[in-house]
Nucleic acid binder design. Structure first.
Length: 587
RNA sequence: CGGGGUGUGGCGCAGCCUGGUAGCGCGUCAGCUUUGGGAGCUGAAAGUCGCGGGUUCGAAUCCCGCCGCCCCGACCA
């Protein structure tokens, strides 16, 4: 009697029937560990740049994440819907985002020459829906969500599922009668996100974030802490302050009290020295002594922005500080026109355009800057004396060691993977789509207040692996694992072993624990290696050796030693450990 | 879009500099032996050497053009 004749339960997946092809070596086109492991463990396969097929094993894990998301959304009172991925372009013209987001949108025309887009997100569609379906305060608050494929023409897809052109997202949208009510909806989603990521076994931090093209005035990103993350995050070592680098603020240290008497401005020849580095080396001073002068186009008009020579300008903060619609670095022609000098020699003294300065420059004296003349800089720059500053703002990119804006502590920098993002949108979209309701007192229609909430589902799955692996492979958290138990049939030809394994398997199935049965005619070492690689939470070794003592060997993934458990007790033992593991999903 | 790298059976690579008609490991298939941490032997299938053009008696190899993929940067809900 051999194992392939059967007596295993209907729901058990046999390896020989599973399309699980593991790779012994790292694929050449994968860089980060989670991407390598997803390919090696046979979870996904690449079709093209930023495009992946989910194989059966990967899809099962994905469905587990989706289920958690769904349960927590439902628990938070959100209603699941499903909107089209294919959308008419007019909707995007109505919100004014057709231009703003066009670069990253896939567009196409139908046979009637109507322009369509493949939805990168669904604010437009859902707001249009809300405007049609919601008429009364009695229907509010209302939060709608969907789990759906999104399309974005990423400039550079990378790291497998981390940044793909097509990916699965959970997007939710709340509609409320007032700002206060919207705050409650926001908080409900925030809390749901904390539960979702905890259940997925992830170590996340919610950080303050910029709102970008999506608009609105307040948002948090949920970051999975990981060195491979694409985003820089600043955390206070003393308090709870956390923000992504785009958003992060810093404490303004008070200007020096005793200001040196600054000698008059003095031009100094700096032929060919355009960069901070070149000038400071030429003049033999610290980069810090220089004032970096950056010419920007603020809503199309030139302006100068000053930061310390050793600092970077944060365009997002500049945009917010000035309340501008768009801010970008000026092109060379604009710079030459605004400063009267080639690029690299700009300075605040004598400029005719508005000059904004980083708050660290308040009271700056005896500094060096460009002279607005070719091959020339000036010494002894005193901002109060020599320049007209239109305003001081926190404009520099924050780095580790900067002062916390909320307390006396200092900031540290870490990397993170953005898996979720919650926004308070206000009325940007509801106004554009006239999403209004009639209030309790009747009268004229009121505009709904909106929030939106995204989770990158496919990215979350990969982030789990990025955070939960070891040298041997994946270490799935119980709640996300594609199966719960790897059952290794070591002696398929041994009828007693096969029979006992089948009994254990049927008991596990009866308890709702999914089993992956390794019924291949491989040597034990191969099965052990693959079990480690695939990383299911528990491994049961069914072999003649242990069965001689009436036992199977059981081992949680990552544990050093196996335990001998009597065959009759294996299922109950695993069931108990599995329930425990579901409870403690965070490390 | 700029910079760098790379493209050779399913996967990982060598061969290219110095042209002579393709090789290694893994995987796959068959057989035998093996069986507790990626087995051994024997045999087999599988590659228009990314695509197009050029040079040459002859091109994986040299030259030109194009494309894919990966990394860095810019960009990004």
């Amino acid at each position: 009697m051999s194992a392939d004749v059967l007596f295993f339960g209907d729901y058990t997946m046999r390896w020989t029937r599973s399309l699980i092809n593991t790779l012994r070596e790292d694929p050449q086109d994968a860089e980060i560990v989670s991407h390598k492991l997803m390919l090696r463990a046979g979870l996904i396969r690449r079709l093209g740049g930023g495009l992946y097929t989910f194989l059966p094993l990967g899809l099962r894990a994905l469905r587990k994440v989706e289920r958690i998301v769904r349960e927590e959304m439902d628990r938070a009172g959100a209603l699941e819907i499903l909107m089209p991925a294919l959308q008419p372009a007019e909707l995007w013209e109505q919100s004014g985002r057709f231009g703003a987001m066009s670069a990253s949108m896939f567009r196409l025309k139908d046979r009637g020459e109507r322009t369509m887009v493949l939805g990168p997100t669904h604010e437009e569609v859902v707001t249009d829906l809300a405007a049609r379906e919601i008429n009364s305060y009695r229907q509010l608050p209302c939060t709608l969500y969907q789990i759906q494929t999104k399309f974005r023409d990423e400039i550079r897809p990378r790291f497998g599922l981390m940044r793909a052109k097509e990916f699965i997202m959970k997007d939710a949208y709340s509609f409320d009668v007032s700002l206060d009510a919207a705050d409650a909806s926001y908080q409900a989603m925030y809390d749901a996100y904390v539960r979702i990521f905890t259940r997925c076994g992830l170590d996340t931090r919610a950080v303050e974030a910029d709102t970008g093209d999506i608009g609105g005035n307040w948002s948090h990103e949920f970051m999975v802490m990981a060195d491979a993350g694409e985003d820089a995050i600043l955390l206070c070592e003393a308090c709870a302050y956390a923000a992504n680098q785009e958003r992060a603020e810093r404490r303004a240290d008070p200007p020096a009290q005793a200001r040196p008497e600054t000698p008059p401005l003095e031009p100094v020849a700096t032929p060919g020295a355009r960069t901070i580095e070149e000038v400071s080396r030429l003049l033999g001073c610290e980069p810090r002594r220089l004032v970096k002068t950056i010419i920007c186009a603020v809503d199309g008009r030139p302006a100068a922005v000053l930061v310390d020579g050793d600092r970077e300008l944060n365009l997002a903060k500049l945009k917010r500080a000035l309340g501008a619609r768009s801010v970008e670095l000026a092109d060379d022609a604009t710079i030459e026109q605004a400063t009267g000098a080639p690029v690299g020699f700009a300075g605040p003294a004598g400029l005719k355009i508005p000059v904004y300065a980083d708050l660290a420059l308040r009271g700056a004296a005896d500094r060096i800057s460009g002279a607005n003349r070719a091959d020339t800089h000036v010494r002894h720059l005193d901002l109060d004396r020599d320049a007209v500053i239109a305003g001081y703002h926190d404009l520099a990119v924050v780095v580790a060691g900067d002062g916390c804006p909320r307390c006396a502590g200092h900031l540290v920098e870490r990397r993170g993977i953005e898996v979720g993002h919650v926004f308070k949108l206000g009325t940007k979209y509801t106004e554009a789509f006239e999403a209004t309701y009639l209030g309790e007192q009747g009268g004229s229609a009121e505009t709904m207040v909106m929030g939106c909430y995204g989770i990158g589902v496919t990215r979350t799955l990969q982030a789990v692996i990025e955070q939960r692996h070891d040298a041997d492979g994946i270490r799935w958290p119980a709640a996300v694992a594609p199966y719960v138990v790897s059952l290794l049939l070591l002696d398929p030809g041994d009828a007693a072993v096969a029979e006992a394994a089948a009994r254990v398997e049927r008991e596990l199935e009866a308890r709702g624990l999914d089993v992956l049965l390794d019924d291949r005619s491989e040597r034990p070492g191969v099965k052990f290696k693959d079990a480690d690689l695939i990383g299911l939470p528990f491994r049961v070794v069914a072999g003649a050796k242990a069965l001689a003592k009436g036992c199977f060997e059981v081992r949680p993934r990552g544990a050093k030693e196996s335990l001998l458990v009597p065959v009759d007790e294996v299922a109950a033992w695993l069931d108990e450990r599995y329930r425990e593991a579901l409870q403690e999903t965070t490390r």
